[in-house]
């Protein structure tokens, strides 16, 4: 492998990592706040992509302006899912049961999307989907640069919300001690509902970028979930910055192995890297405590 091919693979990995971080952000936030492993994250990404597709293909609203509609729509969906399903889970077995419940949610969403949109593949189109800028000898695709920029902005926004706002203090207080939070007047149920809403809402952004870089149908989400879970676990479940770091780390490894060695080995090395890092740092790169720290 030449140095330029290696460098290209690293650049591709960093930019693609940004897209995966966008898709994983909601997953890690929901786990961090609720101790819920959201198996429906993959289909939610696809739902976000479909919403963008409907707006752009049938209403004529561009992908980026369309986020002003899809993000609130997904927030409402998240609130409804929390209210309808997650709230009913008991604290003592919440994490285990959440896998079953969110899998059921995924099946329902997939069924509805299939009934409405069919199974033919579609892909989001816009002028910046195929364009790229030439820099330092590399062609950098605009859509990946946009995705990376959105990922950084979104991660920063989530970090600010959790650590610099009153709502963020309420979130973390209710996580550390629900009873104590209740006693000081925090409406813990409301905080959790809004948090899940935000977690699902940010997935709309990941869905838009995913749908602009990949053809998708309602079944595509299942291919994503294992990779997103790996990112969240490696980053430290609940850590927003960890998800970003882990996504870039894993995608760079994936792309370098695919180019340098063989694409056949890339998925193996992707998950092997997860095992190796966890054997050294069992709580992931940043640890789940990060999001809950004062």
């Amino acid at each position: 492998m030449t140095l330029s091919a290696f460098a290209q693979a690293v650049v591709d990995g960093v930019l693609t990592g940004g897209v995966y971080a966008l898709m994983a952000a909601g997953l890690t936030l929901i786990f961090g706040v609720m101790d819920i492993i959201n198996i429906a994250q993959g289909i939610m990404v696809i739902l976000g992509a479909y919403l963008s597709y409907e707006l752009s293909a049938h209403v004529g609203i561009g992908l980026l302006p369309g986020l002003l509609l899809t993000v609130p729509a997904m927030f409402v969906l998240g609130v409804a899912i929390e209210f309808g399903f997650m709230r009913r889970l008991r604290d003592q077995d919440r994490t285990q049961m959440s896998i079953l419940v969110t899998y059921a949610v995924a099946i329902v969403i997939e069924g509805i999307v299939t009934a409405v949109a069919g199974v033919d593949y579609v892909q989001l189109q816009a002028s910046y989907v195929n364009s790229s800028i030439h820099m330092l000898g590399f062609y950098l695709p605009d859509i990946y640069l946009i995705g990376f920029g959105l990922a950084v902005a979104l991660m920063a926004g989530l970090y600010f919300m959790l650590y610099r706002t009153k709502f963020g203090h309420a979130v973390r207080a209710s996580l550390q001690n629900r009873t104590a939070a209740d006693l000081i007047g925090i409406d813990v149920s409301r905080v959790r509902t809004i948090s899940v809403g935000i977690g699902v809402a940010v997935t709309a952004v990941g869905g838009m970028v995913f749908g602009a870089t990949n053809a998708f149908n309602p079944n595509t989400g299942y291919d994503l979930i294992s990779r997103l879970l790996a990112i969240v676990i490696l980053g430290g479940m609940g850590s927003i910055g960890g998800a970003m770091g882990a996504a870039i780390f894993l995608l760079v490894i994936n792309d370098v192995v695919a180019v340098w060695w063989s694409p056949t080995w890339a998925p193996l090395v992707y998950f092997a890297a997860l095992v190796v890092v966890l054997s050294v740092r069992p709580r992931g790169l940043f640890g789940r405590a990060a999001v809950r720290a004062q």
Partner: peptide, 13 residues
């Protein structure tokens, strides 16, 4: 090159 079915990102290849 041969790549596996599970590939979710073809950018590198």
């Amino acid at each position: 090159k041969v790549f596996p079915e599970e590939v979710t990102d073809y950018t590198a290849i």
